[in-house]
């Protein structure tokens, strides 16, 4: 019997069989490349030739003086900031409203969450079309007498990053709403009862009961939105590729251009490491908050 439970070797063999499929794939295709990207970042490799030279910190020195990198760095933070304001702020407000409604609640929730499952590539196509100079956004603006605001959104240096952030928020805010809703359902009903007895109006009970009770959930949504928006590549690449000029360049698109397209593997990897460090830090904070929650 190969798997005889009585055998002395059975526990080890079992462990091997249960863990090996997952672990092999995981180490080869996730853990190893994570170390590799750090290693590449200390070399001048072009991604093709068999030879690569160790260049020390040269790529990182270049990073610090690279104006485009800093533009992408700044853009990534602005991009995340806008998305956080929308997904956390508006997400909370929508969830709080939704929690007070019974009629048509599922229908409304479905409409708000539906865009979450749409591929970023499809989101890009839809919004590129809507943002065209003669597209539906500008047509609506003209229709309601705000024609002065109409602009070629994705071609405008001042608007492009915000326009794309809005499109991304459209496709992700449903997730925040759902998480906030789950948090709201955990708020003790008696607290609202007490606030009502004390003569609090709807706004006051939101301000003094809902908000404090939701603080941990808000932190979760905040960090989750932050890490997810830092990782974004698809929607920016599929709409502007970082353009016009560099006005919507973010870290991931810049890394892709330098590394994958221009074959500067060493330098592209240094950008990748920067991204890795930022996202890891945010994730560690996120998990800390969560484990505090669990206790």
């Amino acid at each position: 019997m190969f798997l005889d439970p009585e055998s002395k070797w059975a526990p080890r063999l079992n462990l091997f069989l249960f863990l090996m499929p997952a672990l092999t794939i995981y180490i080869v295709f996730a853990i190893y490349p994570t170390f590799s990207v750090v290693e590449y970042s200390f070399t001048d490799w072009d991604g093709i030739s068999p030879k690569r030279n160790f260049v020390g910190l040269a790529n990182y020195e270049r990073l610090f003086t690279d104006k485009i990198f800093w533009a992408a760095f700044r853009n990534t933070f602005v991009w995340s900031g806008v998305i956080i304001v929308i997904n956390v702020g508006l997400g909370l407000v929508i969830a709080a409203m939704l929690a007070r409604v019974w009629k048509a609640r599922l229908l409304i929730q479905t409409c708000i969450v539906l865009p979450v499952v749409i591929s970023p590539m499809a989101v890009a196509t839809i919004w590129r079309w809507m943002y065209q100079p003669t597209g539906v956004i500008n047509q609506v603006l003209e229709g309601i007498g705000l024609g002065g605001l109409a602009t070629p959104w994705l071609g405008s240096p001042g608007a492009v990053l915000y326009a794309l952030a809005l499109a991304h928020s459209w496709s992700t805010i449903g997730l925040s709403v759902v998480i906030f809703l789950a948090g709201l359902q955990a708020v003790d009903e008696n607290l609202y009862e007490a606030a009502h007895v004390d003569g609090a109006n709807a706004f006051q009970s939101f301000r003094y009961v809902t908000l404090p009770a939701l603080r941990p959930v808000t932190a979760v949504v905040f960090i989750l939105t932050l890490t997810q928006s830092f990782k974004v590549f698809d929607i920016v690449w599929a709409t502007t590729q970082g353009g016009p000029v560099r006005f919507s360049e973010i870290l991931s698109t810049y890394m892709y251009k330098r590394g994958a397209l221009e074959k500067q593997y060493g330098y592209g990897s240094a950008i990748g490491v920067a991204l890795l460090v930022i996202v890891s830090l945010a994730t560690v904070i996120y998990m800390q908050i969560q484990s505090k929650e669990d206790r």
């Binding site: 995981y26 295709f29 490349p33 830092f230 990782k231 890394m255 994958a260």
Partner: peptide
């Protein structure tokens, strides 16, 4: 090791991943 996996942003490691594949 599995926790690390939750932190790795795909975008950051695509260059070596391409080489491995």
């Amino acid at each position: 090791l599995f926790l690390i996996g939750l932190m790795i942003p795909v975008t950051a490691i695509v260059l070596p991943l391409f080489q491995i594949v």
